[in-house]
Design a protein around this nucleic acid. Sequence first.
DNA 1: CGGCGGGTTGACCCGAATCAAAGTGCGTGG
DNA 2: CCACGCACTTTGATTCGGGTCAACCCGCCG
Lengths: 236, 236
Amino acid sequence: MANRGSDVFRPTTPADCAGCPANHRDLFASLDESERSRLIESFRIASMQAHEVIYHAGDPGEYVYMLHFGLVKLLRYSSSGSERIVGLARSGDTIGMAALSQIPYRRTAVAMSACRVCRVPAAVVRDYNRHHPEFLASVLELYQASIEMADTFLTELSTGSAHQRLARLLLFLTEKDDHGEAPLLSREDMGALLGITTETASRLTAEFRRAALIEVVAADRCRCRTEALQQIALAG
Amino acid sequence: MANRGSDVFRPTTPADCAGCPANHRDLFASLDESERSRLIESFRIASMQAHEVIYHAGDPGEYVYMLHFGLVKLLRYSSSGSERIVGLARSGDTIGMAALSQIPYRRTAVAMSACRVCRVPAAVVRDYNRHHPEFLASVLELYQASIEMADTFLTELSTGSAHQRLARLLLFLTEKDDHGEAPLLSREDMGALLGITTETASRLTAEFRRAALIEVVAADRCRCRTEALQQIALAG
DNA sequence: CGGCGGGTTGACCCGAATCAAAGTGCGTGG
DNA sequence: CCACGCACTTTGATTCGGGTCAACCCGCCG
């Protein structure tokens, strides 16, 4: 397992905040300038590369993390030991919210690409809520989004044929991406996401590529023919 | 689709509260007597039978519901139209929390057995939080539990062979039940929960019954040989 | 150079979907 | 009261998708 990134955290600066995709929404949408500059002193920021672990399931939950950019997978280990991806986080998403409930993380968070994360002490968030009850709404929204994703995973990525699942995954990834393309995951990650074997994931991506449903534009990025994929996603 | 139960709601009484399994935990754990009696005036309670719909996906979310007893399924319809069960609720659970975010319900809630639900206006909950920020913790706990369940569904009930999934489902249902037995679901519900066909669900339950892994003690209840099922859940 | 991780591909087989039919319990209406 | 229809379950025959096991390729790094 890759190293923890905890050693590379440095204080967050106002400039970091300015570039933060969560700046004007989500958790701190309602903050004004003075409040933000007060809170920011407890924030820490870090860059991580693919395969680095942000936190482990079982770690005491002391921080939530806001993702500035990159792609993060959230893992669970099944009773039989194999790992299953139960969530994905992208720019602007907040992860590790179990920390707000003062319980250990239940999932493991691992960077799938180069990432930057802003680490916020959960105690600061809880304390902030104490004086700003309207803050509840922001937090609930984040949870709502988590549940939304879990439901999507269950309905879209865990049912139907492997063809359908892969097509839906590619569509899911493109729609979350700004550039009209999608991150191209490793075959193993696809498997852990879709509940199929890596061999099948490999076979299918190769097949999709041959059928020109996807076009690999970089080692880890691809462009998708969304109309055709939608066709497959429904019944293929 | 069965009728809505909205017409049968009557005012909640203190006696109802006394018998409510959520009385001393979850959402209103921190309430004292006077507060409770003030809030209770806005509560409504209803009994429902199997197949009645508590709320539909898309309905404006105005209420959360606390389940006094019974079993409720939470559904999502996949893009291809078929329904998938993405959650279950039991005595003491709270459902419909999207209402707290003032958004329409994303799931459909349907009673799977006789139930009693206490209907609480979301506005009352939100308002209560305004003056009791420590209330946040209770709400977060509920969300945390939702996510926990979603993860369980993904890791335990959507992976592995159909044998394993059914075994895990039975174990899941027994552990949530007080009487050492489990509700015996319809084959169709099993299918919608496990991502398998009703025929397979039928074949497997018949097989489990013949192997004396489960013993049907009523039309809709069964007793499970948990040790043997655990064996199967891991690798069978 | 050799080893190693990730991807691709092939051969084979098994589990679960599909299509089909028959059995069971239950409520309704004749 | 019985007969009929309906919903649900069970079971069978057949098909096929995807799992399994194995070989091979390629790029990378020690």
